[in-house]
Design a protein around this nucleic acid. Structure first.
Length: 359
DNA sequence: TAGGCCATCTGGTCCT
DNA sequence: AGGACCAGATGGCCTA
């Protein structure tokens, strides 16, 4: 079983990884090319930020110049008499105008390089955001949260491969959310269609770090607003993870990114979900990113449960008989996830994970 | 207003 | 010598 899993999954994983690396490198180069001409404007050169004032004053003591003027003077080291020991090290030289100019130029070049380096780093982080669960262009994870989530994601996938069986959703979310902030935990849990309250209850049962009494989650699972994860479209009352439509049926449910109420065209060239490896199932992270309107944005983390069979069988999730809920659409007023109770004997809603084991 | 996050500048250190 | 990398400092922006 395990060997079969590896033989079937690993090539795909390797291919995805190779593609991703390729994309990353290409994107990085592209970003570089686009940025190069403008990343150090004349204004930047002539008017360094206030932060550089400190350096300017320090630069007066710059002694690494191979100046040709040969001016070497002791810097007021001995003028205090004998009460201070002589300074060791290279003697400071007077800063001529030419030296100052050259020093400034060096510093500006270094600053430009550093800016470029940080921009590249940020581009790489953006690429990383696209491949971890819960990607959104409008509600970006912070850098540190992106790294933490990526680490947990890798560990979780490794665990899955090692065990050769899929974990229950609670375990999976716990793995993903280890060490994450509460807002990010909310986000990930929401992405995985997990009832956060349920999740946190289990965590507490496990002696985890969350405290249920008076926890904001127990009342408003998604009421916490993070400055970076929030947006003008965030609606605490309705939940940031707007459940635009809920319906359950014995046949299962599915997660559908549905701007305008339609399913995504996964075969469309515009579909950007290919950046994300499996397991990401919310529309925002694996579905097409529509950001042309407020309405569209509100769907980034929306879920759609329906008993209808999707045109993409691999994206449909099937409850066992024990997980069947009688049908009937829920109104939009229902708080998010309050009616979703995932238990260990139910199939976790990360359909791509299922795909691993349904081959 | 405090706190979180970020971009940028900067000097030091290491490497090629 | 010059570039890459790093960490500290600083100020801006945003949100609770």
């Amino acid at each position: 079983m395990l060997s079969r899993l590896f033989s079937e999954v690993l090539p795909d994983v390797q291919r995805l990884a190779a593609e991703w690396v390729e994309d990353t490198e290409r994107d990085g180069c592209k970003v570089k090319e686009e940025r190069e001409p403008c990343h150090l404007g004349e204004d930047d050169l002539d008017e360094p930020q206030e932060g550089s004032s400190r350096a300017e004053s320090e630069m007066a003591g710059d002694d690494d110049d191979d100046d040709d003027d040969g001016e070497e003077e002791e810097e007021c080291g001995d003028e205090n008499g004998g009460d201070k020991p002589k300074k060791r090290g290279p003697k400071k030289r007077k800063m001529t105008a030419a030296r100052v100019e050259r020093s400034k130029m060096r510093r500006m070049k270094a600053n430009a390089r550093e800016r470029t380096r940080m921009h590249d780093l940020n581009s790489a982080l953006d690429n990383l955001r696209k491949v971890v669960p819960c990607y959104s262009k409008t509600q970006k994870l912070s850098k540190i949260e992106t790294l933490r989530l990526a680490k947990n994601y890798i560990l979780a996938l490794g665990e899955i491969l090692r065990n050769g069986k899929r974990p229950d959703v609670v375990t999976y979310v716990q793995m993903l959310c280890k060490g994450l902030s509460q807002p990010t935990t909310n986000l990930v849990a929401g992405c995985l269609q997990l009832n956060t309250r349920n999740f946190l209850t289990e965590q507490c049962a496990d002696g985890a770090r969350f405290h249920m009494p008076n926890s904001p989650f127990s009342v408003h699972p998604y009421s916490y607003r993070c400055s970076r994860l929030s947006s003008p479209h965030y609606q605490p009352g309705a939940g940031s993870l707007n459940m635009r439509a809920h319906s359950y049926s014995a046949s299962g449910y599915e997660s559908v990114y549905m701007p305008g109420g339609t399913s995504p065209d996964y075969n469309s060239p515009d579909y950007e979900g290919q950046h994300s490896p499996p397991v990401c199932l919310n529309g925002g992270l694996s579905g097409k990113q529509h950001e042309t309107s407020d309405t569209d944005r509100s769907y980034h983390y929306s879920m759609h449960y329906t008993g209808l069979t999707t045109s993409r069988p691999s994206h449909s999730l099937h409850f066992g008989a024990s997980g069947a809920r009688s049908g009937g659409a829920h109104s939009e007023n229902i708080p998010p996830f309050h009616d979703v109770h995932l238990h260990h004997d139910r199939a976790p809603p990360y359909e791509d994970l299922n795909a691993f084991f349904h081959n």
